[in-house]
Amino acid sequence: MNTLVRENRSSNGDRPTPEQFVAPAATVLENNDGYTLEVEMPGVNKESLEMWVENNELTILGRRSMPVIEGTRLHQESRPENFRRSFELDPSIDAGKISAKIEQGVVTLTLPKAERVKPRKIAVA
Protein backbone atom coordinates (compact mmCIF):
# COMPACT_ATOMS: atom_id res chain seq x y z
CA MET A 1 0.00 0.00 0.00
CA ASN A 2 2.82 2.36 0.79
CA THR A 3 4.89 1.64 -2.23
CA LEU A 4 4.35 3.84 -5.19
CA VAL A 5 5.91 1.48 -7.52
CA ARG A 6 5.32 -2.13 -7.68
CA GLU A 7 7.08 -2.73 -10.89
CA ASN A 8 4.94 -4.47 -13.41
CA ARG A 9 7.07 -6.78 -15.45
CA SER A 10 4.28 -8.15 -17.61
CA SER A 11 3.06 -4.81 -18.77
CA ASN A 12 2.79 -5.51 -22.46
CA GLY A 13 -0.84 -6.53 -22.13
CA ASP A 14 -2.26 -8.31 -25.12
CA ARG A 15 -0.21 -6.44 -27.67
CA PRO A 16 2.91 -8.22 -28.73
CA THR A 17 5.91 -5.89 -28.71
CA PRO A 18 8.60 -7.06 -31.05
CA GLU A 19 10.93 -4.27 -29.96
CA GLN A 20 13.29 -4.97 -27.08
CA PHE A 21 13.65 -2.35 -24.38
CA VAL A 22 16.01 -1.73 -21.53
CA ALA A 23 14.57 -0.90 -18.11
CA PRO A 24 16.13 2.39 -16.99
CA ALA A 25 17.46 2.85 -13.45
CA ALA A 26 14.98 4.63 -11.20
CA THR A 27 14.94 6.22 -7.78
CA VAL A 28 11.74 6.85 -5.86
CA LEU A 29 11.41 9.33 -3.02
CA GLU A 30 8.38 9.80 -0.82
CA ASN A 31 7.34 12.64 1.41
CA ASN A 32 4.04 13.86 2.86
CA ASP A 33 3.01 15.61 -0.34
CA GLY A 34 3.72 12.80 -2.74
CA TYR A 35 6.40 10.96 -4.63
CA THR A 36 9.31 11.95 -6.82
CA LEU A 37 10.41 9.47 -9.43
CA GLU A 38 13.78 9.94 -11.16
CA VAL A 39 14.48 7.81 -14.21
CA GLU A 40 17.84 7.72 -16.02
CA MET A 41 17.55 7.88 -19.77
CA PRO A 42 20.83 9.08 -21.29
CA GLY A 43 20.38 10.04 -24.93
CA VAL A 44 16.69 10.85 -24.54
CA ASN A 45 15.34 14.37 -24.89
CA LYS A 46 11.96 16.05 -24.53
CA GLU A 47 10.95 15.22 -28.09
CA SER A 48 11.74 11.52 -27.82
CA LEU A 49 10.07 10.94 -24.45
CA GLU A 50 6.56 9.51 -24.08
CA MET A 51 4.65 8.92 -20.87
CA TRP A 52 1.13 7.75 -20.19
CA VAL A 53 -1.09 6.44 -17.41
CA GLU A 54 -3.40 3.58 -18.21
CA ASN A 55 -5.23 1.33 -15.75
CA ASN A 56 -3.42 2.99 -12.88
CA GLU A 57 -0.09 2.15 -14.41
CA LEU A 58 2.47 4.74 -15.44
CA THR A 59 4.62 3.90 -18.46
CA ILE A 60 7.70 5.84 -19.51
CA LEU A 61 9.18 5.27 -22.95
CA GLY A 62 12.30 7.05 -24.14
CA ARG A 63 13.83 6.73 -27.58
CA ARG A 64 17.54 7.36 -27.63
CA SER A 65 19.24 9.62 -30.09
CA MET A 66 22.89 8.86 -29.54
CA PRO A 67 25.63 10.96 -31.13
CA VAL A 68 26.52 9.54 -34.50
CA ILE A 69 30.27 9.00 -34.74
CA GLU A 70 31.95 8.11 -38.00
CA GLY A 71 34.56 5.43 -38.05
CA THR A 72 35.21 2.15 -36.29
CA ARG A 73 33.84 1.30 -32.88
CA LEU A 74 36.68 -0.01 -30.77
CA HIS A 75 34.72 -0.65 -27.61
CA GLN A 76 31.06 -0.61 -26.60
CA GLU A 77 29.37 -0.74 -23.23
CA SER A 78 26.20 1.23 -23.98
CA ARG A 79 23.04 -0.64 -24.85
CA PRO A 80 21.46 0.22 -28.19
CA GLU A 81 17.88 -0.45 -27.06
CA ASN A 82 15.38 2.25 -26.18
CA PHE A 83 14.15 2.64 -22.61
CA ARG A 84 10.82 1.53 -21.28
CA ARG A 85 9.49 0.88 -17.81
CA SER A 86 6.11 0.71 -16.14
CA PHE A 87 5.19 1.50 -12.56
CA GLU A 88 1.98 0.71 -10.76
CA LEU A 89 0.68 3.84 -9.09
CA ASP A 90 -0.13 3.82 -5.43
CA PRO A 91 -3.87 4.54 -4.91
CA SER A 92 -2.96 7.66 -2.94
CA ILE A 93 -1.58 9.36 -6.07
CA ASP A 94 -3.65 11.92 -7.90
CA ALA A 95 -2.94 10.73 -11.45
CA GLY A 96 -4.37 13.91 -12.94
CA LYS A 97 -1.70 16.03 -11.30
CA ILE A 98 1.45 14.20 -12.35
CA SER A 99 4.06 16.50 -13.87
CA ALA A 100 7.41 15.75 -15.48
CA LYS A 101 10.59 17.35 -16.75
CA ILE A 102 13.71 15.99 -18.44
CA GLU A 103 17.17 17.40 -17.90
CA GLN A 104 20.47 15.91 -19.11
CA GLY A 105 18.93 12.49 -19.63
CA VAL A 106 17.12 12.27 -16.30
CA VAL A 107 13.32 12.32 -16.19
CA THR A 108 11.93 13.71 -12.94
CA LEU A 109 8.25 13.04 -12.27
CA THR A 110 6.31 14.65 -9.47
CA LEU A 111 3.38 12.53 -8.34
CA PRO A 112 1.30 14.39 -5.76
CA LYS A 113 -0.87 12.55 -3.29
CA ALA A 114 -4.56 13.28 -3.41
CA GLU A 115 -5.63 15.85 -0.82
CA ARG A 116 -7.78 13.34 1.02
CA VAL A 117 -4.86 11.08 1.92
CA LYS A 118 -2.41 13.76 3.03
CA PRO A 119 -1.69 13.80 6.72
CA ARG A 120 -3.62 16.60 8.33
CA LYS A 121 -3.00 18.39 11.55
CA ILE A 122 -6.05 18.77 13.68
CA ALA A 123 -6.17 21.91 15.67
CA VAL A 124 -7.48 21.76 19.20
CA ALA A 125 -10.36 24.16 19.54
Partner: peptide
Protein backbone atom coordinates in the same frame (compact mmCIF):
# COMPACT_ATOMS: atom_id res chain seq x y z
CA UNK B 1 35.15 4.36 -27.96
CA UNK B 2 35.40 5.15 -31.66
CA UNK B 3 38.21 5.81 -34.07
CA UNK B 4 38.30 7.37 -37.52
CA UNK B 5 41.04 8.87 -39.67
CA UNK B 6 41.13 12.13 -37.78
CA UNK B 7 39.86 11.48 -34.26
CA UNK B 8 39.47 9.19 -31.31
CA UNK B 9 36.01 9.73 -29.82
CA UNK B 10 34.84 8.65 -26.37
CA UNK B 11 31.09 8.63 -25.63
CA UNK B 12 30.12 8.30 -21.97
CA UNK B 13 26.65 7.94 -20.43
CA UNK B 14 26.47 10.40 -17.55
CA UNK B 15 22.81 11.21 -16.96
CA UNK B 16 21.94 14.04 -14.62
Amino acid sequence: LYQNNDNIVAVVELPG
